[in-house]
């Protein structure tokens, strides 16, 4: 039963909720509350519209199946160390899937900008607008892990074998580092570019070239000299090569040499350092873009 007085109390302002000039609430608590709520929204969307996730699982599966079959009759050992192509390909598909998923991270944010939903977030007294970035990142990382898990299982089923637990942990770390950097890049673009058409165009021209200019589909030794140089500078290669090593070797340590470049061989910890440096570089690069919008 709605009485006149209860209407009054529901509609009247309550300054006690709004605090003073300075924050009297816990900034961290507020940040966690808003980040959690924004992340929850993305997962509700995923649950009700799962087609993106489905496509994100089917596509790498097709890569494994079709691309793997392309070189089935290549001589054994052609791709190095007594491998068949399916085994060679699996790490490439894992990294590429995580990479493309992360590259699309900016799209939902761009649509929020275009539909005006972002304004709803920007007029709210968020503890920090970086919660919008944090929520997207958590979402994409979770998605990538789901996809990676499925691909690892599918590759095992297709005969690529399965790394041990430590190996899987290291793979998770490497995937995480790639996803963090690329997600940040995509989110930065989502705030910098004028609209989704432009963002999709950038995704389109980045996606496949970065794949072909890495060691995902073929080893370095197959490539033209200049492409070897490009591939050795491509962050994706720094994720693919160690994962490939982990797939083939159960004995490894942090100092193990896991990757060859035209110049030198690189150890696991150096690879992780390179990926960390890539993440740091991207974060630095998008700072001005985010600050311009979030100031």
């Amino acid at each position: 039963m709605i009485t006149q007085s209860s209407i009054q109390s529901s509609l009247s302002p309550d300054p006690s909720l709004h605090g003073g000039l300075e924050d009297n609430s816990s900034a961290l608590g507020d940040f966690l509350q808003e980040t959690f709520a924004l992340t929850k929204r993305l997962f509700i969307q995923l649950q009700r519209r799962p087609s993106t996730l489905m496509a994100g699982i089917i596509q790498p599966f097709m890569w494994l199946l079709l691309f793997g079959a392309l070189f089935t009759n290549a001589p054994r050992g052609f791709f190095g160390e007594d491998l068949n192509y399916g085994q060679f390909l699996a790490p490439g598909v894992i990294v590429f899937t995580a990479f493309s998923g992360a590259l699309n991270a900016g799209l939902p944010v761009m649509f929020d900008r275009e539909f005006g939903f972002l304004n709803r977030l920007l007029v709210a007294p968020l503890a920090s607008r970086y919660s919008i970035v944090a929520a997207s990142t958590i979402y994409i990382v979770a998605l990538s892990f789901i996809q990676t898990g499925v691909i690892v299982a599918a590759s095992a089923f297709l005969g690529a074998g399965l790394p041990n637990i430590a190996g899987l942990g290291a793979i998770a770390l490497i995937v995480l580092l790639v996803v963090l950097g690329v997600t940040a890049l995509s989110l930065g673009l989502a705030f910098a570019l004028p609209g989704h058409i432009e963002l999709i165009a950038v995704i389109f021209v980045t996606n496949l070239p970065l794949l072909f200019a890495s060691t995902a589909l073929a080893p370095l030794s197959f490539m033209a000299g200049w492409l070897q140089v490009v591939a050795s500078l491509n962050p994706l290669t720094y994720a693919i090569e160690p994962i490939r090593y982990l797939y083939l070797h159960s004995e490894w340590g942090i100092g193990t040499l896991v990757m060859d470049t035209p110049w030198t061989s690189i150890s696991l910890w150096a690879v992780i350092l390179v990926l960390l440096a890539f993440d740091a570089l991207v974060l630095l690069a998008i700072q001005p873009l985010l600050r311009r919008r979030f100031a």
Partner: peptide, 15 residues
């Protein structure tokens, strides 16, 4: 989102 979910999101954004 449903109407109720949207309001819950909004409530969290205003802490």
């Amino acid at each position: 989102l449903t109407g109720r979910e949207l309001l819950h999101l909004q409530a969290a954004l205003y802490h």
